[in-house]
Nucleic acid binder design. Structure first.
Lengths: 161, 161
DNA sequence: ACTGATGATTAGTATACAAATCAATTCCGG
DNA sequence: CCGGAATTGATTTGTATACTAATCATCAGT
């Protein structure tokens, strides 16, 4: 029987813990307490202003309940605006604030550094291959997850640029 | 700037979500509601009977606070025994019950199946390389995580058997 | 005996999910 | 075109990780 610590499921949990810890360390050193999930949400809202919470949840693969909490906290920090959509009064339209945009650009170098550091155990070729395989594994199993990602229509999910 | 969805940190979160979902689906179909983390704890206790919570936490890379909760739930389900260690009355000695052992063997095929399914997007060679790189990345950054794994003494952390 | 370290727990915060609920929209038969 | 049914966006509740920080009990070393 394969040892626990050699199983992909266990390794996935470990790598995620490391990724989160590195993100907090780097972004924290840059003077922000933004979490990886909050960063993902804010970056996506910045890229696609005016999207609603359900669409955001699809883009970054949260479920709707998690999205509500994440957006609550970002709104409380003054990083985004949440408004009722006039065309569909169920939906909440999201927009980044000036403060949010400024924070994003201020921590961008730290976010990039975190990506390098979390792959520090791999050389450059290995890191590239690792990311390729991770992308392919995720794309191949996207609909097995309980909050599957829903990309922009027409986007190539498993492209291997 | 690299797209969010191509960053290792984001992909790590996605792959972890998928791994957890697949585990729940397979183990659930086998008639158990054991979580991935509970499984890891129980399997480790089964392998190393009589270890205490701090040692367990080191083996599977939880922090102590998380361990308390996980052990609470496993004890409530009757899958393990938690007793004060006579030699060090701070420590709680953990032992799997007959019921726990029986559950472990009953769900073992589902756990193995989950490992294969979560790598379903990769062919066999890619899956092997992916696990190798995942192991190497985790080993290389173990001490960056906030709850670093502490293996059995003498164990080769980054061996690539 | 005093000091520092360690095992465990508790409180508090942030994901992540399921399930239930409410409001608003869309769909479809007539 | 109308009206009920099904669907969808958002929220709430409840459970389970995962951490930090603080606390308590106990142990180790001097």
């Amino acid at each position: 029987m394969r040892r626990l610590k050699d199983r992909p499921g266990h390794l996935a949990r470990r790598f995620q813990q490391i990724a989160v810890a590195v993100f907090h360390a780097e972004v924290g050193a840059a003077g922000s307490d933004l979490t990886p999930v909050q960063y993902a949400a804010l970056a996506e809202i910045s890229n696609e202003p005016g999207l609603d919470q359900a669409t955001l949840a699809g883009r970054i693969a949260f479920d709707r309940a998690t999205t509500t909490g994440v957006i609550d906290r970002l709104e409380k920090k003054g990083l985004l605006l949440r408004e009722v959509n006039g065309a569909d009064r169920r939906a909440r339209v999201l927009r980044i604030t000036e403060e949010g945009r400024s924070l994003l650009s201020r921590i961008e170098p730290a976010v990039e550094a975190a990506q390098r550091i979390m792959l520090g155990g791999l050389d450059e070729a290995e890191a590239a291959e690792f990311v390729r395989l991770l992308r392919k594994a995720v794309a191949g199993s996207n609909d097995l997850s309980r909050a599957p990602r829903r990309g922009v229509s027409g986007e190539l999910e498993a492209s291997e640029g």
